[in-house]
């Protein structure tokens, strides 16, 4: 009975959200570079990506300069080439210089990083608040505030377990797909509250630039504002026991109209008596 209800709900979600659009967008995951961060889908993720690239460039320049010296020395100052060892072993000027220059470089790194930290921590003025509760080993979601308030569901891995045990070649979204994805509207500030039922989990969606530990007994918050539609996949990022690798996160970012349709469909489901019996009251996790 519950299985049927879940299946029905899933179908409604897909119909309401527009099946084609979402699956076309899910190709972005595969299209991402495999050498770098996933393509950002929020301003925050883009800022993080920029900071990351900035750090890589700085490190690369230091790398070239420092190891340029080292490898030149290895090439030129070897005994087999008749090099005679100099005996210098101190130079206050040089030593001060190579202490001060790194400090200046660090300031250049710290400045943009500080701005991003402050932006990341600014969870105020959210349009929608969703609570993500980590369980061993699934995620529960409660829409607490904003459009869709009262929606609650549990989201589990939908890759069939049989596929895990045998060696058959897995599908594209292997271990990254769930039965009930989180649906959010594009362009709205979504605040994610995290908590957990048993051990520490972490709610992580790379393309949205969010990762927040879910701590049993306490809540923590983070936020994102998606700037393009699509399906964004993430995983639990804190070791939480046996099936740590099997509790993915799937966020569908949709247009406002599709979101409204999804909310209506969800409300209808929970209003239906069968579904109401199958699901506990929204705010109480069992």
């Amino acid at each position: 009975m519950t299985n049927n209800a879940a299946l029905l709900m899933k179908k409604t979600v897909q119909a309401a959200a527009g099946l084609g659009g979402i699956f076309a967008a899910s190709a972005t995951w595969a299209a991402n570079s495999k050498y770098n961060f996933q393509e950002p889908a929020s301003r925050m993720a883009a800022d993080i990506h920029d900071l990351h690239m900035w750090m890589i460039w700085i490190c690369l320049i230091i790398f070239v300069v420092v190891f340029g010296f080292m490898f030149y020395s290895i090439y030129a100052h070897r005994k087999s080439k008749g090099a005679v060892a100099a005996q210098f072993h101190e130079s206050t000027t040089v030593e001060i210089l190579w202490t001060v220059i790194p400090v200046l470089i660090l300031v250049g790194m710290a400045w943009p990083a500080t701005k991003t930290v402050l932006a990341q921590k600014d969870t105020t003025n959210a349009d929608i608040t969703i609570k993500a509760t980590g369980y061993q080993w699934k995620w529960g979601y409660d829409y607490i505030k904003g459009e869709g308030e009262g929606i609650a569901f549990v989201s589990t891995l939908s890759t069939p377990r049989g596929q895990l045990e045998f060696g058959e070649y897995p599908g594209e979204n292997y271990l990254l797909e769930v039965d009930n994805p989180v649906v959010v509207p594009i362009g709205k500030k979504v605040r994610i509250l995290t908590t957990a039922q048993d051990v520490i989990h972490a709610w992580w969606v790379p393309a949205l630039g969010v990762k927040q530990d879910a701590i049993p007994g306490f809540i923590r918050d983070t936020w994102f504002r998606a700037d393009r539609e699509g399906v964004f996949r993430g995983v639990c990022a804190e070791l939480c026991g046996k099936d740590h690798g099997y509790m993915p996160i799937e966020v569908h970012v949709v247009s406002e109209e599709k979101y409204a349709a999804w909310v209506a469909a969800q409300k209808q489901k929970s209003a239906a008596p069968a579904a109401a019996a199958a699901q506990p009251a929204p705010a109480s996790a069992s």
Binding site: Y169, W204, P206, C236, A237, L239
Partner: peptide, 14 residues
């Protein structure tokens, strides 16, 4: 960077 978490025995084919 591409998004593989540590301490998992199994992973996406990408």
């Amino acid at each position: 960077l591409a998004g593989m978490q540590r301490r998992v025995p199994d992973y996406n084919p990408m």
